[in-house]
Design a protein around this nucleic acid. Structure first.
Lengths: 227, 227, 227, 227
DNA sequence: TATGAATGAGGGTTCATTCAT
DNA sequence: TATGAATGAACCCTCATTCAT
């Protein structure tokens, strides 16, 4: 199998200035993302990432202090993309609870890597990422939650602080629903074959849409009502 | 550290009939639960469990086919306890969205082990538990979701199938909120020290109560409205 | 799957006299042989044997001191059968080197279990069989080698002691040829696919026949010649 | 016990080029061979080998994919040495069946490690060596069998293909005879003490010499005779 | 004699990370 | 900055055998 050269640095193998280092860092993240598309997180070794990125194993550690930090950065990228899309949508008119729920569910299904990364977020964060790296990630996240949350609040006519809250809840609920909706293949087959278990097999889009719509309606209903 | 003797079999060390085997199985689960109280899941080895249960390592495998199956059974126990409490509450009158949300949050905070076990449910289920064991667990869960869901539906005046749905959503949302609300100590300290990150530190009870209330209100509002 | 009851003791489960104990011992050996037909030696556990024999694991140890001793007895049975066949053939006329080689090869191919047991003989004997058991086996073997060897010597007109010697050589050569002729399936496929390796893939019958014929001719030629 | 330092790399601990890697690989094989001299194969753990070679356990796996592959390489070395000696002898004149048989027996007795390795060849090959590794070994073996076999054929005046055949037979017969001739010490003592068992205790050199002489004579006698 | 619950030693292998070059 | 050889800790599970019943 020919591994396509994903190195962005051209003939020179050495990143000497900041821009080149960013490129190489990007190469590594791209390689990790590519692997993550077809391999479960636990099965991806640093060797695999290094090979896929066309660098040596040790080089990875020049750019990311730990394996978990690498994937946390990857998640950061995906979060950024997701918030970009959200902001773009919020700049468009005609948003209702239903419409927004629909849009979110649709958008997330289109980002399966993001879903899977979010699901391991805690495992990743809680283990083996140096605190400074975590804080960088968290600040980035907090900032976008604040900004987009404010827009969302306006667009959906939510009570004060309701936008950020809704986004946090979204983060809480999405991995759970995603995992519930996508059991490993053999288990899924067994569940489908057993009528007693029918209730446990849910459709991600349907459930997320319904849940979000209910939540937003609920939040909207509390507007003006002291908690 | 003194390990208290948790053996339920009395002087005899040998479980010869089904009752005694259940006792021993219970001892093992109790030992695992005790360890889980003060140790993260990944740090608990079968050696630890065996020592804590006062049996040999091999003995564990007479009762549980894999380490993950052991913890899945533990989760099953906790689920049963939780549903028992829920059913008891549902048999009492005066339930509203607010009251129920309050009760759920309060009850879950009182079951920290349950929260942590639920959070690793997927990791556990998806790896290294023989399918039959998983199905036993799933059936037990499905059965209680159906029963309690019906009661909940009645008590909260939810639309058809809303009770089971609500309970499934609860499962989806609880681990996410719990993890969000309880970062590891050093991270928590850093977040508290950084004003930019204030918005990310949430209180489990508050958020779950608000989220559930919103969801139930939302569900109640959809009653009679075709989806 | 229904396991056919191979217990020879009838309704009573307990062997109280010597005959019944022999029956049970035979049951166990039969069970082991049946398993050995479709499973490699290392993959057969005492649990398997016990289940197949319809007895408890501990019972096996009432009849055989170790797992290896059990299989050594099984080999003893097969050796006896083989020598019986040999003796019967030797009582018939018209034996030449060629004819005898042909007969041996043919007979051994018809006894695949015997071949496989002989091949593990040393592994079994050298490990974990109490000396007395080994000696019983060895005496039985020595006795038959002496008797049949003498007959063989006469039938093939070999020099003094040539019969026993030939039988011992046979024991030495058969496992080696058998293993050489029957590599595990994936290896065999690879060997067949590689023209360089063609010479390594031999046919058991052909080689044994040729080797035995050569040996007997050689032995016959030395008759009367001082060594 | 003092472990002598067998590291060939001098002060540097790191093998950076192919030559140094070959040296290190050789160190590991030497360490394994040294252990194998005084310990049965099954009792040698990778930990032992690593300690004896003065490297970490993980390092072994940089050079050999499995424990069995390591010993297969060791066998490959010994095979090469044996064929080298054989080729050297074949270049000298005055070879007869007797002389060659004598030489082979003498030479093999001088290589006890080789004898023991050959005896476990199948066990090793058939278990846990990646196919490519096995094929490398087999090709090397096939090549030398072909070359030396042709020389042997000429020197002993064997019929066509008789040289390779003889060498294959040699491989089949040697381990069997060796094991027969060298029972574990307690068993040997018991056999010697029992007159009934006298016939089972053979001398490796005597038997191999006689067997080979007979085989070669037999083969020589078939020359020109269609099979 | 029969049972089967209990034992517990035992080891190959992986892989994130380091650091000499 | 880049490399990749070296490290070494970490761990689940099996299964022959024992022995209380």
């Amino acid at each position: 199998m020919v591994i396509k050269n994903i190195c962005s640095l051209g003939p020179s193998r050495r990143a000497v200035n900041a821009d080149q280092k960013d490129l190489r860092r990007g190469d590594i993240l791209t390689a990790a993302a590519t692997l993550f598309e077809r391999t479960p997180y636990e099965a991806i070794t640093m060797s695999h990432v290094a090979t896929a990125a066309g660098v040596a194993k040790g080089t990875l550690y020049l750019y990311f202090p730990t394996r978990e930090a690498l994937f946390l950065h990857l998640l950061g990228q995906h979060y950024a993309g997701w918030f970009d899309a959200l902001d773009a949508r919020l700049r468009q008119p005609h948003l209702s609870a239903q419409v927004w729920a629909e849009w979110v569910a649709h958008e997330l299904v289109a980002r399966p890597l993001f879903l899977r990364l979010v699901a391991i977020l805690h495992v990743v964060l809680e283990r083996n990422v140096p605190l400074p790296e975590v804080l960088v990630f968290k600040r980035q996240l907090a900032s976008r939650v604040a900004t987009s949350g404010a827009e969302l609040e306006r667009a959906l006519d939510l009570p004060p602080a309701g936008g950020g809250r809704l986004l946090l809840w979204l983060q809480a609920v999405v991995p759970g629903l995603a995992q519930m909706a996508t059991p490993p293949a053999p288990l899924r087959a067994a569940i489908e074959a057993d009528p007693q278990l029918a209730g446990l097999l849910v459709d991600f889009t349907t459930e997320l849409r319904a849940l979000l719509a209910a939540v937003v309606h609920g939040l909207q209903g509390t507007k003006g009502t002291p908690e």
